[in-house]
Amino acid sequence: MVKSIYKDIIGAGDCVINENDIMRMATLAKLELKPHEVPFYISEVQRMLDYAEAVNIEDSAEKVSEAEPLDFNSMREDIASESFTVSEILSNAEKTEGGFIKLRKRSENE
């Protein structure tokens, strides 16, 4: 059974998000955030997590262990076949050299 009715729990989550959480997630996700952006993500992520509290099903732990994997994927034999050429694969890169993507270590005006 669902512990709390969805509409009643909005804003009533027990997980409080702070600046450190957002900065830690941004680091893990390789996102450079500007300081003025952080309050926006704190409030937005908090709001979404508060909604998510509705997922608190009393017996969900048991259900997780009982749950069969969703049968979406079917694996095939790993057989080499015709594919794209190197030049096709590199065609969207800004600069290439000798079949590799060429990058600057830093931008020229830094």
Binding site: C15, L49, A52, V55, S60, A61, A67, L70
Partner: peptide
Amino acid sequence: YYDKYYAKAQALRFE
């Protein structure tokens, strides 16, 4: 947080 959110969401999906 995985068990608290993601695992429970998957359980709900299964249900």
